[in-house]
């Protein structure tokens, strides 16, 4: 039988990782419930929010109850982590993994990521460029957009290292994209600005946040749903503000 703290640690870590990596809050709650069922916990109550997690376990017949609050500070998107946590919780629920094994596996997931920066920059550049093509760009636009995407992915990770708030960095990203695209129109003939900017900002839009928000709201998690919708709206507005700021500065300089 696993000790109380190991069980609690494993359960908390699993749902904390899900919340930090862009999973839905209901998924975090479900993970806790399923893992607890598999580990033979008598009763569990859990409340997950985008910014934190509270849970109470009743472990045995003597009604020993234990609670914990976990704060979630950073929220980035890493679907691979969500997938791995899901897998572990499934195995714990089916009884083929003990709390200790789960904890070890989860710590491995949490551990420092092998940063594939070059891959991410390439992916960002390629997706920005292909979105531009998709939205009716021509080959010159493709190149400009490619550099926009690469530049954004080059700048964003250092900003989050410096603990710049995500909303501010999304404004910076919008402004940088626009600036790059505007320079593109100066440097290369035949560049149309519309598909370049709208393509390059596509990877920056909070698509996952919106869909998660809707899923949470429909399932009755009104607090998390509302918070996520707020987060998504704010991040779109900041992005738009970045674009607008740069467009008007540019217009002012050229006039």
């Amino acid at each position: 039988m696993d000790s109380i703290t190991t069980t609690l640690d494993a359960v908390c870590l699993a749902s904390q990782l899900i919340l930090e990596s862009g999973g839905e809050t209901y998924r975090a709650e479900e993970t806790v419930e399923r893992m607890c069922q598999g580990l033979g916990v008598k009763h569990v109550d859990v409340l997950a929010l985008p910014t934190g997690l509270m849970l109470t376990l009743t472990l045995d017949a003597e009604d020993n109850t234990i609670s914990r609050i976990v704060r979630v500070h950073t929220r980035s998107i890493d679907l691979n982590r969500v997938d791995k946590c899901n897998d572990i919780s499934r195995r714990v629920a089916s009884g083929s993994m003990s709390a200790e094994e789960a904890l070890r596996a989860l710590k491995e997931i949490k551990g420092p990521k092998k940063e594939k920066r070059l891959l991410l920059i390439a992916a960002s550049a390629l997706s920005a460029a292909s979105f531009t093509m998709m939205l009716g760009g021509v080959w010159v636009d493709f190149f400009v957009s490619f550099f926009c995407g690469a530049l954004v992915q080059l700048v964003l990770p250092p900003l989050s290292h410096l603990r710049v708030p995500p909303l501010i960095s999304s404004m910076i990203a919008g402004a940088l994209t626009t600036l790059m695209a505007l320079f593109g129109t100066l440097a290369l003939p035949g560049v149309t600005i519309e598909p370049v900017i709208s393509g390059a900002i596509m990877p920056l839009l909070p698509g996952l946040a919106v869909t998660n928000a809707m899923r949470d709201t429909i399932r009755g998690d009104l607090v998390s749903g509302g918070a996520r919708i707020m987060e998504a709206i704010l991040s779109v507005m900041m992005l738009a503000a970045g674009i607008g700021l740069m467009l008007s500065i540019w217009g002012g300089v050229r006039a």
Binding site: D78, L119, S130, M133, M134, Q153
Partner: peptide
């Protein structure tokens, strides 16, 4: 457009650590 859409979706997925 469709090819670009496929490439864009795939590379965006890479960006999201899928």
């Amino acid at each position: 457009q469709l090819i670009a859409c496929g490439v864009a979706a795939a590379s965006f997925s890479v960006l999201m650590h899928q």
